[in-house]
C-alpha cells in the first residue's frame, strides 16, 4: 500500500510504485496496472514515455480500466495468481467500498503463492483506511522532495532570478520522501529516496551539505527494498516465492 501524502504528491507516489514494479518485473515479467475509471480523471492517466524513462518498459505494461473496486480486486487476484505477472498495481478511487479483511487476505495469499508484487496506490487519500488494508505487509506514505533539498535556502530563492543555466541545476533525478508507516517485519521510519533511472535502483538521497550517518543509510536501503536488491543489478530475476521479503498486497 502506497499512498500519496497530498494530491500534488501523486507524481511522487506513482514514481515510487512504478520504480518498484520495474524492479519486480526485471527484464521478463509483465506488470498489470489496474486503475478505476475515475482515477485517471482525478490524477491523470499513466503515461508511457515517462515510464520508459523510469525504466519500466511500456511494452510489458497491461492496463486494465476497472469500472469499480469489486472488478479491480477480482482482476488483481487473477493477475497475482498468474505466473506471467511480476507486479500488480491497483489504483482505486474514492472510498474503497467492499475492500474488507477477506478481500485483503485473498490478495495477500495470491501474492504469497506466486511471489508477485502487489501494490495498492492511493492517490487521493481519504481519512480512514479500509479494513482490508490491514492485510498489507507494509504501508508507505510518499511526499515530494525538493530538488534543492538540503541546499541552502538562499540558493533556492536565488534560482528564480538567476540565469537559466543556474536555475536548471538541481532539477535532477526523481526525489521523494518515503515514510514507512506500518511494517509487519520491522521498524518504521522515513527516508529521502532518489531513483536512479539510469541503473534502476533506489538510492538514499544525500544532502547537498554533509552526508547522513552510514548506519541510517544502510537501514534505509534495506527498507526501500528489503530483498536487498538495492545493491544488485536491476535485471536480476524476482526473488523466489516464499522468501521472506516485502510482498505487499493491498
Amino acid at each position: 500500500m502506497v499512498a500519496a501524502a497530498s494530491p500534488a504528491a501523486a507524481g511522487a507516489a506513482t514514481g515510487f510504485v512504478g520504480a518498484l514494479a520495474a524492479l519486480a518485473a526485471g527484464t521478463k515479467g509483465a506488470v498489470l496496472w489496474i486503475r478505476q475509471d475515475m482515477a485517471a480523471r482525478e490524477s491523470g492517466e499513466i503515461w508511457a514515455p515517462g515510464f520508459a524513462t523510469l525504466g519500466l518498459d511500456p511494452a510489458r505494461l497491461v492496463l486494465l480500466r476497472a469500472p469499480d473496486v469489486a472488478a479491480a480486486l477480482k482482476a488483481a487476484e487473477a493477475g497475482l495468481s498468474s505466473a506471467a505477472v511480476a507486479a500488480v498495481v491497483i489504483e482505486p478511487f474514492g472510498a474503497i467500498q467492499g475492500f474488507d479483511r477477506i478481500a485483503g487476505r485473498r490478495l495477500a495469499l495470491a501474492a504469497g503463492r506466486s511471489g508477485a508484487l502487489g501494490v495498492m496506490l492511493r492517490l487521493a487519500p481519504q481519512p480512514g483506511a479500509p479494513a482490508g488494508l490491514s492485510a498489507a505487509e507494509t504501508r508507505w506514505r510518499l511526499s515530494p522532495l525538493s530538488s534543492a533539498w538540503g541546499a541552502a535556502g538562499a540558493r533556492a530563492a536565488a534560482a528564480r532570478t538567476e540565469a537559466w543555466a543556474e536555475a536548471l541545476e538541481g532539477w535532477g533525478r526523481p526525489l521523494a520522501r518515503a515514510e514507512l508507516t506500518r511494517n509487519r517485519f520491522g521498524g518504521v521510519g522515513r527516508w529521502p529516496l532518489a531513483w536512479g533511472f539510469d541503473d534502476g535502483l533506489f538510492r538514499l538521497a544525500e544532502r547537498r551539505l554533509g552526508a547522513l550517518d552510514p548506519d541510517v543509510r544502510r537501514d534505509a536501503a534495506a527498507a526501500a527494498d528489503p530483498r536487498d536488491r538495492a545493491a544488485g543489478p536491476a535485471d536480476r530475476p524476482a526473488a523466489a516465492p516464499g522468501a521472506g521479503g516485502l510482498r505487499r498486497a493491498g
Partner: peptide, 12 residues
C-alpha cells in the same frame, strides 16, 4: 538518459 523530460502521469 538524464533527468526525466516526460511526466509519469498525463491528464487526458
Amino acid at each position: 538518459d538524464g533527468p526525466p523530460r516526460r511526466p509519469l502521469r498525463l491528464f487526458p
